[in-house]
Design a binder for these strands. Structure first.
Lengths: 165, 165
DNA sequence: CAGTTTGTTCAGTACATTTTGAACATTATG
DNA sequence: CATAATGTTCAAAATGTACTGAACAAACTG
């Protein structure tokens, strides 16, 4: 424990607003609230913070903090920094939108796109060994799906270029 | 009630797969599962379906069905069709990706972008009446946020163009 | 106009996800 | 080696969201 009483001061108004901004973003991206809180705190922090810094200032549990940092690391939204003479891990927010977006896309979006692709292929197979009055109509519909799938696949990298600069 | 025993046959393999595809999509888009089910059913159906058709074939409640159809209408993912001599509402899936995507963007994304914009403006105000050692550093960070915000705002319409054709 | 059909709303419940906190593993320190 | 520091994991609890089903409203029907 830290000897000094207020080594980790409570959050100020500015910090609270910034954190809330990222909490909302996390919500949109279907990430846990705590992930948004932690990223927000690191984003606005002047110095690298360790797990306990985050936990205490955000008033969340050790487990959530550990999990949240893991998720943020998983798509490169934060970086660890080495602090000489300290064996804790310290973190800073990655601020390159390109890096974060492409990490997020690769980790959280691509898998969905991929499994969607597989499912459509499966649907195509089912349809191919089917015959009935509506066969032609169904063929058109599945073709339509395949078309959407292709457009989505092509759009994703372009979107990343667009956002990432 | 329908006099015929099997006027609404159970879902076939093809239908189930297509519905599951849209259930996964709904999940990615943070929409209720039932919304995905209903859209999937309408997408693959050969004819317009009414509320009870959906409810019975998907085995979900009247309330969910009503809510789901409302949501799908709200961003133009389905259209109502008039069937002479029947006072029920019938629905078909809208299949223009452009229409669906822009409806979804306007209804479910824009509000978030907008409130994010407001929050960043608020943060800017807070910062402007603040002075401290780290003022300059904070200024840079908030500028960074404003930059992200602008890029997201500009990207959204371009993405729609990109996807919609 | 009483009864039926159709669709909406909403309080309560069911369900899924996140958070907690304690137990555990690992590495450092004296 | 015993103790402390650091971080992870996971079962249980808390939380938030979607679903159900019944009550209701509105519009049609005979």
């Amino acid at each position: 424990m830290n000897g000094v009483l207020e080594a980790r001061p409570a959050l100020g108004e500015l910090e609270r607003e910034v954190i809330e901004l990222f909490v909302r973003m996390a919500d949109v991206l279907s990430l846990p609230r705590s992930v948004g809180e932690i990223y927000g705190l690191l984003f606005i922090a002047s110095d690298p913070l360790c797990l306990d810094d985050c936990r205490i200032r955000l008033n969340i549990s050790k487990g959530s903090t550990s999990q949240g940092l893991k998720i943020l690391r998983s798509f490169g939204a934060i970086r660890t920094v080495y602090i000489p003479g300290d064996r804790k891990d310290y973190y800073v927010a990655e601020t390159s939108l390109r890096k974060i977006a492409s990490g997020f896309a690769g980790e959280q979006i691509q898998p969905h796109v991929h499994s969607g692709k597989e499912r459509i292929a499966r649907i195509r197979e089912i349809l191919d060994q089917y015959s009935g009055d509506d066969r032609e109509l169904l063929d058109e519909k599945i073709e339509h799906l395949e078309n959407w799938q292709k457009r989505a696949s092509k759009a994703l990298p372009l979107i990343l270029k667009l956002i990432g600069g």
